[in-house]
Simulated assay, not measured.
Amino acid sequence: MRLLRDLTNITFLELDVTSTKSIASAYRTVENQTGGKLHYLVNNSGAGFVMPLLDSDIEMGQHLFDVNVWGVVRVTQTFAPLLVRAKGTIVNNISTASCMGLPYQGMYCGSKAATRLMSETLALEMKPLGVAVVIVITGNIRTRYQGGSYFSSIAERIGVYARGEQGHPQMEANLYATKVVGDVLGGAEGTIWRGAQSTIVKFALAMIPTWLMNQLAVKGTGLDVMEI
């Protein structure tokens, strides 16, 4: 967040989305400083985990869901009164990984799929209260996010995915932010697709049969050549 420190209209608050105490503290500060209204809530925090499902640590997966799924619910529930008073907008940043299974990202895909469907439900429930919900399906963005196994023969290839070095196109974070902010401030509702390859994924899911999408998903991951 250091890039924002020189801006005069920014207030930094500590917020741990897995802690109800931390969320409540942030809520009280926002309520006091905004006169009890919040026009935009952006749920952007998230955790990643790259590992074959058979080798995935369940406790790590539970923490992943606690951040990616329940964190969004906790924060939204807490800040809802301020949003309703302002007739505001909730923006949930999700992922193209919410739309299809991706090798080595089963737990991440599951968490994002759960958040996407919950967000679609939230949009229906908040509309009568005057609150819009925007679901951002995000593609590849250039950021700093990034033994004893059946998959040991392709461990190097899995590492490529864990480090985000698979060579897919990536959108610069500033350009992505500009586009999403433009969408939200322009009154967007429902689902929007932003980030490198997000539009391709959108149309591919609508036009390409599942069996072919699955073949494309595993191509080059090592699963297509793995030996046991």
Rank of each mutant, 00 (worst) to 15 (best):
A47V: 09
D55L: 08
F12P: 00
D57L: 09
S56M: 11
L15N: 09
Y27N: 00
L13G: 04
L53Q: 10
H39Y: 14
S19G: 07
F12T: 07
G48A: 13
D16L: 07
V17A: 01
T18C: 12
S56H: 08
T20M: 12
G36V: 10
I10T: 10
D16Y: 08
T11V: 13
H39D: 15
V17G: 05
L15F: 05
H39Q: 12
I23L: 03
T29H: 10
G46I: 08
V50M: 11
L54Y: 03
K21C: 05
L13S: 04
V17S: 05
D57Q: 05
S22A: 07
P52N: 09
G46Y: 05
I10F: 11
T18W: 02
S19Q: 09
I10H: 04
K37F: 04
R28W: 00
Y27R: 04
Y27C: 03
L41E: 01
I23G: 02
S19D: 12
Q33F: 05
S19I: 08
G46V: 06
G46P: 02
T11Y: 01
Y40G: 01
T20N: 13
N44A: 09
V30I: 14
V50E: 04
I23M: 05
L54D: 11
V17M: 08
H39M: 02
L15A: 06
G48Q: 14
Y27K: 04
G46R: 06
D16N: 15
T29I: 15
S25C: 07
L54T: 12
T20H: 03
S45P: 00
G35M: 10
R28V: 06
S19C: 11
A26L: 09
S56C: 12
E14Q: 14
K21A: 15
D16E: 10
A26E: 04
Y40W: 06
L53N: 06
N44Y: 06
T29D: 08
L38Y: 02
L41H: 02
T18E: 11
V17W: 00
Q33K: 15
T18Q: 11
L53Y: 12
D57K: 11
L54N: 07
S19M: 11
D16C: 02
K21L: 10
V42I: 15
V50R: 05
Q33T: 14
S25W: 00
I23A: 04
N43F: 06
L53V: 15
E31N: 13
T18I: 05
T11W: 00
D16T: 03
I10Y: 10
V17N: 06
N44Q: 02
N32I: 06
S22V: 00
L13I: 10
D16P: 04
N32W: 00
N32R: 14
L41C: 07
G48H: 10
A26Q: 05
G36E: 08
L38I: 00
A26T: 01
S25V: 07
H39L: 06
